[in-house]
Write a protein that binds this DNA or RNA. Structure first.
Lengths: 220, 220
DNA sequence: GTTATCTGTTTTGTATACACTAGCCCTGAA
DNA sequence: TTCAGGGCTAGTGTATACAAAACAGATAAC
């Protein structure tokens, strides 16, 4: 693995999991020492992350981790909604039915996973990731897939902020199941509509969580 | 201006305008000599262009300019359609009416521009760019705008392949005018639908042009 | 004749040294 | 006390040297 890829992955993880909080200033030498590589690969990684929108140039010099405000969540969903709808639509038209049939079966079991503590939740998140990858494989269009991938980076950040509310997770699993079943039935219209529903509910949950979290932090 | 930005801009232009044809291999030293900067900024530019999807790593070593096949055009529109629809929708909801009223007036004059030879056509393209920027300003959502910008890079490449058929350009201008008028009227549903129509027609034209172009080249 | 391996060459990947610029502190004067 | 000016410093931007990896060609073995 190249040092620049390693630096990118490491920084990406640190930003997504919150080790590098929004607003954190990223000096090249500092990061190169921390990651054990020279400045060159760090620079490359930073410029990639800037393209991803995870870091930004602030006040002339100095790169900082971008903020994730309530507005950002709304704005992110303004991109997410059309992208995921299109993805679901195309997956319904072209997807390998067998794969999605299998995923549907697993999602029918999601409630048990969600109730299974941390390991279960982890398995559930893993299942969601496999679904995302299946959809990406199904649509095959590299432009759309690339846009989805960048989107999912930002979503991962937000998800970290969301509380793992089992009730919401179960509801989400059911919404997702509707989408998958539509894909299996090659019903692209339904897949798109079900995705719209899922997006709407996800956004509402994300906002509620973020709001209460903001209040909690102000109190604490 | 930084040397790396200069290198990025120069390479971008060369790729979009066809100076660097699809399949062209880009060696770092060669490009750094051509552009008069050292390898470092060239590398940075190349890695940005790779993120944009304009160049790709082929068989282990060697970056090459990505191809634009008929399939690519279809796939690009699978991203373009939802993005532009969303953009039009949001612009209708939030846009500054005055700006779009002005643009509508200019588009009503587009036919005369298109008939005005090369300078007129250029002015027409310029008008379209101003519309794009107005829409981007109106939606304000950085995630969507960023996705649109990357998309437009690829569209610029395709446009170069399309024949400048005045009949198609006039039809496109009328389709665009419908979108703008919907934005002025704050009719987001109509804006989305009109965009869907425009996308469909644009795609059809792009495919037809590309097909005949391919045949011509095979003959020549 | 075909395939595999070795070696030379070319090109990329990484480290580092140097150049330059923006921000900051300190000094001095109003 | 406050503001302007001038270095000083920290950190970025660029060039280049060095290391490593990948390809090509040739030679040898089967």
């Amino acid at each position: 693995m190249r040092a620049s890829d390693k630096a990118y992955q490491a920084l990406l993880e640190d930003i997504v999991d919150g080790t590098l909080q929004p607003g954190t200033s990223l000096a090249e030498v500092e990061q190169s020492e921390r990651l054990g590589v020279s400045r060159t690969p760090v620079r490359e990684a930073l410029s990639q992350l800037r393209k991803d929108g995870l870091i930004e140039q602030t006040r002339g010099r100095g790169l900082t981790v971008t903020d994730v405000s309530l507005d950002d969540i709304v704005e992110l969903y303004e991109l997410r909604q059309p992208l995921e709808q299109q993805a679901a639509k195309l997956a319904a038209q072209r997807g390998n039915t067998q794969i999605f049939t299998q995923l549907a079966a697993e999602f029918r079991n999601a409630e048990r996973l969600i109730e299974g503590g941390d390991t279960g939740i982890k398995a559930y998140y893993n299942l969601n990731e496999r679904l995302d990858r299946a959809i990406e494989d199904a649509i095959a269009s590299p432009y759309l897939v690339s846009a989805l991938k960048t989107l999912h980076l930002h979503l991962a950040r937000i998800r970290r902020l969301s509380r793992r509310d089992p009730i919401r997770l179960k509801a989400a699993a059911i919404e997702t199941l509707v989408i998958i079943e539509a894909i299996v039935d090659r019903n692209s219209e339904l897949a798109a509509s079900a995705t719209a529903v899922h997006m709407q509910q996800s956004l509402r949950n994300a906002l509620e969580t973020a709001r209460s979290r903001a209040v909690t932090e102000r109190v604490a």
